[in-house]
C-alpha cells in the first residue's frame, strides 16, 4: 500500500455549521476529516461526531424510540433541544419524513420547521430532505433558504438525482451528503458528478449507505474501509469524510420482537455495535436514533 507523505491529509477537512463569526448562528462549528491514515491508528486526528436523528412526522419512526422520548416526537424543536442538552448529541439530523406522504405540498412547513429547529439548537444541523424527484427541488430550496449561511449538511444526493440538492447547497452555502448504494465505485462516481456540477470538494460528505447489523452490515463496513483506503492511497475523489446512518437497525426483528423490558437494551446494543463499528471503519459522523446510544457512544469516543 502506498501511503501519502505524513504532511498530506488523506481526508479533506470539512467544516460543518457556521458560527456568527462564520456567517451563521451556531455556537460551535465542527471540522471533520483531516485524517492522515487508518482510523484509530497512531496519531489519528479525525474528529468523530454522534448525531441523533429526529423527524417532523413520527408515523414511520421506530416505536422503541417513540416510547422512549414520549411527547418529544411531536415537536421537532423540543426533540432537537433535548438531543443536544439532555442526550448529549454532537448534532441533530432532522429528517423531513413528512415529505414521504403522497401528494406532499406543505413546503412552507419545511421552511418553518428548519427555522424553529435552528432556533432551538446551538450546534450544526444535518437535514435529510425528500427523496422524490417531484418535490426534491422545492424541498431543498426551502430548507436551504431557511438555513442560509448555516453550513447545513443537506441530504441526500444520489447518482440520478443530485442536481436539486447540489443547486440548493451552492445557492445557500451548504454541504451535500452524497449517498451511493454500498459501492466504492459508485461513491466515487457521484463525487465526480457533484464536482463537475460545481460543488467544491470540501462541501461533500460521503454516505456509503449503512445496512443494519445482521442484515448486511458487513457490506457497508467493507465499503467504508475501501473508501478510506482509496483516500489514503491518494484518490482525491474519495478523500471526503464519511457519514453513516444505520437507520434500519431499529426496525429489525431482534429489536422489534424483544420483550418490552428488554426493548431499550436490545435497541441500544444493536445500534451501539453498528455505530461503533462504523466509526472503526472510518466514519466521521454516525447518526443513531435511540438517545441512550448517543450517550454510550460519546463515552467510548471520549475515553
Amino acid at each position: 500500500m502506498s501511503e501519502n507523505s505524513p504532511d498530506k491529509l488523506a481526508i479533506r477537512e470539512v467544516r460543518l455549521g457556521a458560527t456568527r463569526a462564520e456567517g451563521g448562528t451556531r455556537e460551535v462549528s465542527y471540522v471533520i476529516g483531516g485524517d492522515r491514515g487508518l482510523p484509530f491508528c497512531g496519531n489519528d486526528a479525525g474528529r468523530r461526531l454522534v448525531a441523533l436523528e429526529i423527524c417532523d412526522d413520527p408515523a414511520i419512526w421506530p416505536p422503541v424510540v417513540r416510547n422512549y422520548v414520549g411527547d418529544l416526537v411531536n415537536n421537532p424543536e423540543d426533540w432537537a433541544q433535548a438531543a443536544e442538552r439532555r442526550y448529549g448529541a454532537d448534532l441533530v439530523r432532522l429528517n423531513f419524513t413528512s415529505t414521504k406522504k403522497r401528494g406532499f405540498n406543505a413546503f412552507a412547513d419545511i421552511a418553518s420547521t428548519t427555522e424553529r429547529v435552528l432556533e432551538a439548537t446551538t450546534r450544526p444541523l444535518i437535514i435529510e430532505g425528500s427523496n422524490d424527484p417531484q418535490v426534491d427541488s422545492e424541498v431543498f430550496r426551502r430548507c436551504g433558504e431557511a438555513g442560509e449561511g448555516e453550513r447545513l449538511l443537506l441530504g441526500t444526493a444520489e447518482a440520478d438525482r443530485y442536481r436539486s440538492v447540489a443547486a440548493a447547497a451552492l445557492a445557500y452555502g451548504h454541504l451535500v451528503i452524497a449517498q451511493s448504494p454500498i459501492d466504492v465505485n459508485l461513491a466515487k462516481q457521484l463525487n465526480i458528478l457533484l464536482r463537475e456540477t460545481g460543488v467544491p470538494e470540501d462541501r461533500i460528505v460521503i454516505d456509503p449507505y449503512t445496512g443494519a447489523l445482521g442484515y448486511g452490515f458487513e457490506y457497508s463496513y467493507s465499503v467504508m474501509e475501501r473508501i478510506r483506503l482509496a483516500a489514503i492511497a491518494g484518490d482525491d475523489d474519495l478523500a471526503m469524510p464519511m457519514i453513516s446512518a444505520p437507520t434500519d437497525t431499529l426496525s429489525i426483528r431482534e429489536v422489534r420482537e424483544a420483550a418490552p423490558e428488554e426493548q431499550d437494551a436490545m435497541a441500544v446494543a444493536w445500534e451501539f455495535y453498528t455505530a461503533y463499528s462504523a466509526f472503526v471503519a472510518g466514519a466521521s459522523v454516525v447518526c443513531v436514533r435511540h438517545p441512550l446510544t448517543v450517550e454510550r457512544l460519546k463515552k467510548v469516543l471520549e475515553a
Binding site: D183, V184, N185, L186, K188, Q189, I192
Partner: peptide, 14 residues
C-alpha cells in the same frame, strides 16, 4: 463486478 461498475462511467471512474 467491481471492475464493471467502475467502468460504467465515461471513460472510467478511475
Amino acid at each position: 463486478m467491481d471492475r464493471y461498475t467502475s467502468s460504467c462511467f465515461l471513460p472510467h471512474t478511475d
